[in-house]
Design a protein around this nucleic acid. Structure first.
Lengths: 152, 152
DNA sequence: GGTGATACGTTGGTCGGGCCAACATTGGTG
DNA sequence: CACCAATGTTGGCCCGACCAACGTATCACC
């Protein structure tokens, strides 16, 4: 691979943050395309997934769980509620909170999104064998854990 | 990994694209903060780095080289030119092209940005040992190569 | 040599994800 | 009771990644 025409500067090619953001961009394109076919975006999936994992929860909790800002939760939830994939009921025990729960249709939709996502993962990781995939996930997991709990 | 309080859904935690985009987000925050101290953004660094690597080049070539859209090259180059970090001269051999070259001040600025970025990389990769860092870079490189040359 | 396709720089948008500030309401604690 | 913290919501901002369109210039082909 000589400096033939159009490859990245080696300066960037060996910069971890560049590799990360670029690979993430590719991943994002695959994921967006997959979700788009179901008229959904990343936030929609994330919220449904979080909801399915935790059961009914307040919007603030959902936000913390999925890494989405409180304010972004609102509009995403509006979308999902409009399509009846989610229900928003006042929490009787704390009138500040909304108790958000996933509906049957929501769970069904989540299944579809999940399938689409799984396919996208496969496309993303195509050039890696099983061991490499696990190693990648492991390394990324270490980084993620480290940078989200800096207090330790 | 028990459902302890406020961690991500395991569903997401084992999804490569999620790990990638989240880690990339953390990386992006570190990098942005580092560049911000020099009043620069990612595009500024990328362009300077590409320019320093390739030598004087047309905007289109710079775009291909750095993965930045032609249209975004324009405004970024405007910024850099305003600060005299870059020069834009008409290419005598092809009057469609601008020949963009990095100035001495630009090269000096690039050095500063590079130092800031190196520090950010270190912070980003802190929890990984040397072997793990290399492995991560290697795996990401494989993915990147694969997804940018789908013809192979 | 003329003509049609292609490349270039530029303008002016769009979109998604990640943020932040502010405010009213409600809850807990001194 | 007074105060502070949390919640939902509105309305904004930024950055990176794109896309369509246009005028100008160049190239390839007949």
């Amino acid at each position: 691979m000589q400096p033939t025409g159009t490859s990245e500067p080696h300066r960037l090619r060996s910069t971890p943050s560049w590799l990360l953001t670029q690979t993430a961009a590719h991943a994002g394109r695959l994921v967006s395309a997959a979700l788009d076919r179901h008229h959904a975006r990343g936030y929609h999936y994330r919220l449904l997934a979080a909801l399915d994992d935790t059961g009914p929860a307040s919007q603030a909790d959902l936000g913390r769980h999925s890494g989405i800002d409180r304010s972004d939760i609102v509009s995403t939830l509006n979308d999902l509620a409009d399509r009846h994939l989610v229900r928003r009921d006042p929490d009787p025990d704390d009138r500040r909170r909304n108790l958000v729960s996933i509906t049957t249709a929501g769970r069904r939709e989540l299944t579809h999104l999940q399938q689409a996502l799984d396919t996208a993962q496969e496309a993303l990781l195509a050039p890696l064998d099983t061991a490499q995939r696990h190693e990648l996930v492991r390394l990324l997991g270490i980084l993620l854990t480290h940078h989200k709990a800096p207090k330790g």
